[in-house]
Design a protein around this nucleic acid. Structure first.
Lengths: 344, 344
DNA sequence: CATAGGGCTTTAAACGGTTTAAAAGACCGT
DNA sequence: ACGGTCTTTTAAACCGTTTAAAGCCCTATG
């Protein structure tokens, strides 16, 4: 039962049926003013009737514009990126670009493979949150091969491309200052890694705030590593057993904060009362966590929107200067933070 | 400072440099046994040295194989789909297919636009969790135009394609029976919609279990609609105010269940003690929720893996019969369920 | 009456690969 | 010198569009 497989319909199918040339059909379908109104209408109608499907590969072979944009992030399952992706999607959608997504899970190799695929497909550009350890050459190479890039969330030293991200140092300082103003003096910093610019910036913001308030910081107050809910949950035991018993935790992100709160609750303590917790990102979930999470809004949608629109500008040949756009975060105070309470 | 833009490197660049024909180069790069070993090595080495980039659009124009697979789901931000996507990704990766992702947010129009894009790109196949209201013709049309499809999570009546999903009726029956065996007699069903096969199946499973146990079911015990954490959170008030005060809630999925538990906690009650709650999906998060969530494991990874591999089989011309593969769910009992406790 | 110009259409050459029949070489034996 | 058999290589067609450039038909103009 082989499918009868009607002959593939192409421009020439229409051209032959209507007794015109393929050039006319091509022009007509793209609403060129070169073709007469009546001809255009006839062609478009016929095309619709017989179910013509535009062949983008053929077209892009000729025009070297594929209408494809690649997006690589650490992990699309992470709600932080998911929100960015959503705004990138809506921005690209409106200009008719298709986007291809990939996780690199911070593996340079995966990222390279993906960029290579984009090059092969003739993608028009790429938006990336670079994997840990991405060398500037990787990005330069992409650009040289006609794949303009825009970075989000993390920057790469030496790569002359636009970067959109939040002002992380300022953001953690906001959270830390909030805790300090409530009376906390011993504050732990949980999660994140020094291997990314974001990680370094956030830690620095915390240190700055502590120092500015004249508070001492013990190195063991930093529990580096966790970046997920699971990670935060597991860090709870360690946090509660910390020497000097910090009364508050400034967390790497909302996921870690929520996980930590779950872990604290599991230990029989009440987050927000027995220990204060701050997050970072202000995911939707922060509002419905119990207690609602005090956190730093990071402007994800803004990051995504601006990154996408900068890339589109680049595609349209506009000169986009390689600026570092820092989006100003805001503190959103909720119930997970309160006055310090000493534990036994 | 226009880029000097080195001449694009193509097959003929290599051919000219080495004094052979493009045919030889093409064959050599693809390891054809037709070309002599020494020739092949020379060609491959030279290609690597000058940084040749394979042009997939050109190739696929001739071969009509693009190496692209489309995936459409309701929402990639939903962790349920995210887990499926991850396993699809790893399965496709290993066979060198690139995948393009899209959300349809249950809007038929978005889904159609995406399928159309896939057709234009000459995608090799599509894996979809069809939007509510998808008519069989949409899928038949895609297949007729050379875009083989495989469905996940939801089925479409009349579409002769493989479907991979969990046995939803059986799964909710498991959860409901568990609650019944704990002594609950008034059980609410929260979230989901009758507009999808999944929604109908899960509700049916709940009804079956109640009936089999000889328990009466009040229509107002069903709070249809919610499908997210936010939705579950908002449904808490309604649930707690329900006539007859059900002592347990069988939720549409883990997100709704966790949201509901947060809402219950916010109302000053303790989930798992004052009211029992079951979820569905067994997301990672179910384990760290407070209290840990009793839920039904739905085999997401299995669904993704099998769907991807069925599609690959189809691409390779194997006859894949349009079976409905039901994956058997399992009940995972944790702390969110317990003996019933009457509320004031 | 030639000619110019405007409006619309066609011709033909790309774009960068793959495919396959046929040509060219290499090697052997007579 | 010649044929026969293998192994390599090549020429040319093809995939479905786009786009300069050229062509055609009419009407307006000097």
């Amino acid at each position: 039962m082989e499918a009868p497989l009607a002959q593939k319909i192409k421009l020439s199918t229409i051209a032959d049926a209507l007794g015109v040339s393929t050039a006319t059909v091509s022009l007509a379908l793209r609403d060129s003013p070169l073709v007469a109104d009546v001809t255009r209408d006839r062609i478009k109608q016929h095309a619709r009737e017989i179910g013509y499907i535009y062949n983008r590969r053929a077209a892009s072979l000729r025009t070297s514009r594929s209408g494809i944009v690649g997006v690589v992030v650490h992990d699309i399952m992470n709600p932080f990126y998911a929100e960015i992706l959503r705004s990138i999607e809506s921005e690209l959608d409106r200009s008719g670009q298709t986007f291809i997504l990939s996780n690199h899970y911070d593996q340079l190799e995966k990222q390279r493979t993906f960029v290579d695929t984009l090059l092969q497909l003739g993608a028009d550009g790429v938006i990336m949150s670079p994997a840990i350890g991405t060398p500037a050459e990787d990005i330069i190479m992409a650009e040289e091969n006609g794949l303009p890039a825009v970075l989000i969330a993390r920057s790469v030293d030496g790569a002359e491309v636009p970067v959109f991200r939040g002002d992380d140092a300022y953001g953690t300082a906001l959270a830390t200052n909030h805790l300090i103003s409530l009376g906390h003096k011993r504050i732990a910093m949980i999660g994140g890694t020094d291997q990314t610019s974001t990680g370094r910036d956030r830690y620095q913001g915390y240190l700055n705030a502590m120092q500015a308030a004249g508070l001492e910081v013990m190195p063991w107050w930093r529990i580096a590593g966790p970046r997920t809910k699971q990670g935060g949950f597991e860090a709870a035991g360690q946090f509660l057993a910390l020497k000097d018993k910090p009364t508050a935790a400034c967390c790497w992100n909302d996921l870690v904060a929520i996980g930590l709160m779950n872990g604290i609750a599991r230990a029989g303590l009440v987050p927000g009362i027995d220990a204060s917790v701050t997050g970072y990102d202000d995911l939707e979930e922060a509002q419905i966590a119990t207690p609602a999470l005090t956190t730093v809004w990071n402007g994800q949608r803004e990051v995504g929107r601006r990154a996408a629109s900068a890339l589109l500008d680049k595609l349209n040949g506009q000169q986009v200067r390689p600026s570092q756009e820092l989006i100003k975060p805001e503190l959103h105070v909720r119930q997970s933070t309160g006055r310090p309470k000493e534990r036994a």
